[in-house]
């Protein structure tokens, strides 16, 4: 029997790991990976609450489906923004000086 708290510990550790990546890293791709890891942690917490909630409900699972679909959309947009950032500034590292202006 795996108690709910174990799942929550894994979820919180994933969220903390993603937050570490988002706070510390300067490469935009790594920041995006950190955001995705945080999203995975949130999904685990939601599904765990759905199962152990006392009364079974489909709402958290349905929410996770929507979250996954939106995660796909925002990743696509973030990557295209990253490409255009690289085009403008010549790198994908936050806080670095502008290397080149492509015209």
């Amino acid at each position: 029997m795996v108690p709910l708290s174990w799942y929550l510990v894994v979820a919180f550790m994933l969220i903390g790991l993603g937050a570490y990546g988002m706070i510390v890293k300067r490469n935009l791709i790594r920041i995006l990976i950190g955001a995705e890891i945080m999203g995975n942690g949130v999904n685990i917490a939601l599904v765990a609450f759905a199962v152990y909630g006392g009364v079974f409900s489909y709402t958290p699972q349905g929410l996770v489906i929507l979250v996954i679909a939106i995660a796909a959309a925002h990743t696509a947009l973030a990557l295209v923004l990253m490409l255009l950032y690289n085009r403008r500034y010549g790198h994908v590292d936050l806080g670095s000086p502008v290397q080149a202006e492509v015209k």
């Binding site: 709910l4 510990v9 969220i15 570490y20 706070i23 152990y52 909630g53 079974f56």
Partner: peptide
Amino acid sequence: GLLLSAFVMAMSGGLALVFPWSTDIPQG
């Protein structure tokens, strides 16, 4: 950053372990 996130992880994980969640999978 590592220290901060480890602190947050330890605090939230400890709270999750301490808090009295229901531990069984429901009947239905």
